[in-house]
């Protein structure tokens, strides 16, 4: 046993390290961790306290029902309002939304994001070489973005 004393010392060093780790763990792991899953329970309240950015289509439809109906009838039925008009929760929450009107998107840039011609896109997907197709004119000069089919 005397000749194995150094191994006991080594084991003691490891045990001390392990105990130190447990103490550090106790001090550093935030309260509520693991209550609902592998995260800090308090994070839910923190997230809930953050401001909402997107209003959602239902909110838009309260005032812009005509536009939403037009959108639903056309090819862009699946595209959310805020996909083109940016997050508008701030605008929707105003007492008088007309005092903070959102800026209209530049259709020259916006439409090309999806419809610029690329040979690798599926054949049936509407796409144009915008430089040749419109010669720099904004798309909305001819197309209604809410119902683009001419």
């Amino acid at each position: 046993m005397k000749d194995a004393a150094h191994l006991i010392r080594l084991a003691a060093v490891f045990a001390a390290g392990f105990i130190a780790f447990l103490l550090i763990r106790q001090a550093l792991v935030p309260a509520g961790f693991g209550k609902y899953g592998h995260f800090r329970a308090g994070a839910l309240d923190d997230i809930r306290a953050r401001k909402v950015s997107f209003a959602g289509r239902e909110q838009c439809a309260i005032c812009h029902d005509d536009r939403v109906k037009e959108l639903h009838a056309g090819k862009h039925a699946g595209v959310g309002c805020e996909a083109c008009h940016e997050a508008q929760a701030k605008h929707a929450q105003l007492d008088d939304p007309s005092t903070g009107k959102p800026v209209l998107p530049d259709t020259k840039v916006l439409c090309a994001r999806c419809h610029e011609k690329n040979n690798a896109k599926p054949r049936g997907f509407p796409q144009v070489a915008t430089a040749e197709h419109s010669g720099g004119e904004p798309c909305k000069s001819c197309h209604n973005p809410h119902s683009p089919k001419l």
């Binding site: 005397k2 000749d3 194995a4 004393a5 150094h6 191994l7 010392r9 060093v13």
Partner: peptide, 19 residues
């Protein structure tokens, strides 16, 4: 690094070897 143990007797070294 010795952890305070200076024992390098044959028996101790044999234990080291086995471990």
């Amino acid at each position: 690094m010795t952890l305070g143990s200076m024992n390098i007797s044959e028996r101790a070294l044999a234990i080291d070897d086995k471990t």
